[in-house]
Design a protein around this nucleic acid. Sequence first.
DNA 1: CTCTTGAAATGACCGGCGATCAGTTATATA
DNA 2: TATATAACTGATCGCCGGTCATTTCAAGAG
Lengths: 230, 230
Amino acid sequence: MGDKAVVSGIVAINQRARSAEQKALRRQVVLEVAETYFREVGYEAFSMAQLAKKAGLVKGTLYLYFTTREELFLTLYEQSLMRWGQVFIGSLSEPMTSRAYAERLYSTALMDGAFLPLLIRLEHVIEHNVSISRLIQSKRVFIRQVEAFAEATSTVLQLSEAQAREVVKTMGVLLIGATRSDQGPSLDNEALPQDVQALIASFASEPLFIKNAVRIIEGIRAEAAPPSNQ
Amino acid sequence: MGDKAVVSGIVAINQRARSAEQKALRRQVVLEVAETYFREVGYEAFSMAQLAKKAGLVKGTLYLYFTTREELFLTLYEQSLMRWGQVFIGSLSEPMTSRAYAERLYSTALMDGAFLPLLIRLEHVIEHNVSISRLIQSKRVFIRQVEAFAEATSTVLQLSEAQAREVVKTMGVLLIGATRSDQGPSLDNEALPQDVQALIASFASEPLFIKNAVRIIEGIRAEAAPPSNQ
DNA sequence: CTCTTGAAATGACCGGCGATCAGTTATATA
DNA sequence: TATATAACTGATCGCCGGTCATTTCAAGAG
């Protein structure tokens, strides 16, 4: 009991955060605790009071750093998006097949346990209850990421910039739609009838994503290069 | 004040529902009130107490007809799915282009104001907090609908059964991913900077869905019929 | 070294939520 | 008409996100 005093390493602010840097640092610490907690319990069971407890604060203090629960999640989303972007782009190699590209995209997106659950709730939940200016700021982060994706995609898939942007947009759509089934309740293997098990198996997200990603990339590739004309 | 007594038409149960039919009827009346209310306020703002008030009951009574809020929404989802299925299949004509098929699918799905908002929340929210047996029952409704869709699709697009099933599965994925942007906050036209407006415009759901639906249908069509071989 | 001051932090508090259940009441039947 | 049964009620529960008057602490002034 009484786990105050020194927390971690050199910086160790258990005192009040007064300077702007200290406040930013504390905010980031809270975000890291929040992300761990979020990975444990998911979106719906995540409570601000519990988060405060885990971060060694009191609920009211959280609201000095985040105006609403949703604004906190929006920040987590931005960070996970940028993190995933780095990992995905970093995983691409010079010339790639559509299939290899789709596989990298899928596996890196799933690897980050926070990204997809946040992405899936972005429009219907998170973006409501957030100020317009904060939302604009977030959209700009998104624009930057889309551009980075498009550039890398254009290179490795040998597509025009316009084609690459089209690919990126559609990959997002497909990723959300295909991984939706992974977000259902974890009924594991318990006594589901065969017809339902077969249904679930037929909606397995990985082949669903990859097969359709390839179809779309090849479709886009074919559109701008009519094979028999000019 | 005092709007008891006769409610509507001939049946008019303001009394207790005793027989199984009366109970089923009352349940259906509640569902209809719930759907109207849901269309007004959406998922998050929907409260059981308000619903009870609108249905002329008390909150506790609702829980005699639905075990949880989510089970009520699951029922609304099933009904809207079947309703849409009828409308969509009924709107198909004998031989159709991929594009016409995609357009019908998109427009009929959007027309029913309740279907997409429920579908989008199905796995991450609704299916949690519902009994396993109820979930199995719901999945079977879904299986039946998929089969009906596949049959109609096979006919109008002139595809094999396996191809048609693949089309149907993928259309669902695409529909959810593409219409996600419609679920954001309604920021209308108010003072969004141009870059953000351009982003939103570029993610407009209709062209996003239709272009990619066509790409995928054509991709699936091409897979089983290699043009230069056999 | 002490005092002042203003912002960081607190915790009690708010209204509303989904859900529960002991008690009430209407009604079909004997 | 009396009785048993189950549909219905409404008070109550614990918890939620969010607020705010008050307290506390550290940096800068003297």
